[in-house]
C-alpha cells in the first residue's frame, strides 16, 4: 500500500510542475462554460422547463461538468500506458513488483487530486461569479458531491485504462482513443445534459458508465429525482457499481494481457 501512496505523491508533484498547462486548462474550462451556458440559457428562454430542469439547473450542470473536466477525463485522453504498450515500454511496468492497474490508478488519483484544487475549484468559482447556480443547501449533499467526484474519477480512470489495454490485443489503441473522444463527451452529459435528449435515448445513455462521470454527479449536486433510484444515494450506488465492475474487468484483462500477449518492441 505504501508504494501506491508514494506513486500518488510523485504524480501530485509531477502535475504541480505543469503550471502553464494548468492555467490553459482553467481558461478553456471557464470560456467553454460561458459559451455552453449562454447556449442553454437561450434554449431555456424559449422553454423554461425541460424534463424537470430549469435554466439555473442547466447552467449549474454546465459548470459542474467544466469543473469535473480537470480531474475526470471525460474526453478519454489516453493514459501514458497506451503509448507505453505501443512502444513496448510497458515491459518496464510489468517488471515492477506492483500491480500495473493499481500503479496507474495511484498516478491518476495524484493527477486528479491536483486538478481538483487547481482546476475544479477555480472553474466553479468563475461560474459562480458569472451566473446564478443552484448549490446544495445541506452539508450531507456537499459530502455526497465530493464522493460523486471521487467515483467519477475512478470511472474515468478505468475507462481510459481499458481503452489503453485494448492496445495489447490490437497493437495500437489510438483508434479506440479517437472513438472514446466522441463517445465520452456525448454520453456523459458534457456536451448536453442528458435530460435534453429524447427519453428513449436518455434512458439508454443513463444506464451506460459514461453518465457516471458528469450527468450523475451533476444531478447529485442538484438533488434531482431523475437519479438512479430517484435519490442521491441511488446515484452514488450507480457510480460505485460501474467503478467496481470496470475495475474488476480491468484487473481481469491485466492478468490476461500479462499472461498471453507478447510485449511489443525489441
Amino acid at each position: 500500500m505504501r508504494v501506491y501512496l508514494s506513486v500518488f505523491g510523485c504524480a501530485l508533484r509531477r502535475y504541480s510542475g505543469y503550471r502553464a498547462a494548468t492555467a490553459a486548462g482553467l481558461f478553456t474550462n471557464s470560456v467553454f462554460g460561458v459559451i455552453n451556458a449562454l447556449v442553454l440559457l437561450a434554449v431555456f428562454a424559449a422553454r423554461p422547463q425541460i424534463n424537470g430542469y430549469t435554466a439555473i439547473d442547466a447552467v449549474t450542470q454546465v459548470y459542474v461538468a467544466q469543473a469535473l473536466l480537470g480531474p475526470v477525463d471525460v474526453i478519454g485522453r489516453p493514459l501514458a500506458l497506451a503509448e507505453r504498450i505501443r512502444s513496448g515500454d510497458v515491459a518496464v511496468d510489468l517488471l515492477r513488483p506492483a500491480h500495473p492497474m493499481a500503479w496507474f490508478l495511484a498516478q491518476d488519483l495524484g493527477r486528479a487530486a491536483f486538478a481538483v484544487v487547481f482546476r475544479s475549484v477555480p472553474t466553479f468559482c468563475v461560474g459562480l461569479a458569472l451566473f446564478r447556480l443552484a448549490l446544495p443547501q445541506e452539508p450531507a449533499r456537499w459530502a455526497a458531491a465530493g464522493l460523486a467526484l471521487l467515483l467519477a474519477v475512478l470511472v474515468s480512470f478505468t475507462l481510459r485504462y481499458l481503452y489503453a489495454l485494448a492496445g495489447f490485443w490490437i497493437g495500437d489503441a489510438r483508434g479506440v482513443t479517437a472513438l472514446a473522444g466522441t463517445v465520452g463527451p456525448l454520453c456523459s452529459g458534457l456536451v448536453l445534459p442528458l435530460v435534453l435528449f429524447p427519453d428513449a435515448v436518455a434512458g439508454v445513455l443513463r444506464a451506460l458508465p459514461w453518465s457516471a462521470m458528469v450527468q450523475v454527479p451533476a444531478e447529485i449536486v442538484l438533488g434531482k429525482a431523475t437519479l438512479p433510484g430517484g435519490t442521491v444515494l441511488g446515484g452514488l450506488a450507480f457510480q460505485a457499481a460501474w467503478a467496481a465492475a470496470l475495475l474488476a474487468l480491468g484487473a481481469l484483462l491485466t492478468a490476461r494481457a500479462a499472461r498471453r500477449v507478447a510485449v511489443q518492441g525489441g
Binding site: 505504501r2 508504494v3 501512496l5 508514494s6 506513486v7 510523485c10 508533484r13 509531477r14 510542475g17 513496448g88 515500454d89 515491459a91 518496464v92 517488471l95 515492477r96 513488483p97 506492483a98
Partner: peptide, 27 residues
Amino acid sequence: GVVFGQRTTLWWDLPLRDSLALTRHLY
C-alpha cells in the same frame, strides 16, 4: 534487477532522487 538501455524506469518530470526514493517502497 533489470535495466533496458533504451527504456527508463525513472519519472521523467521529477528529480532523480524521487524515483530512487520510490524504489524503497516498491521493493
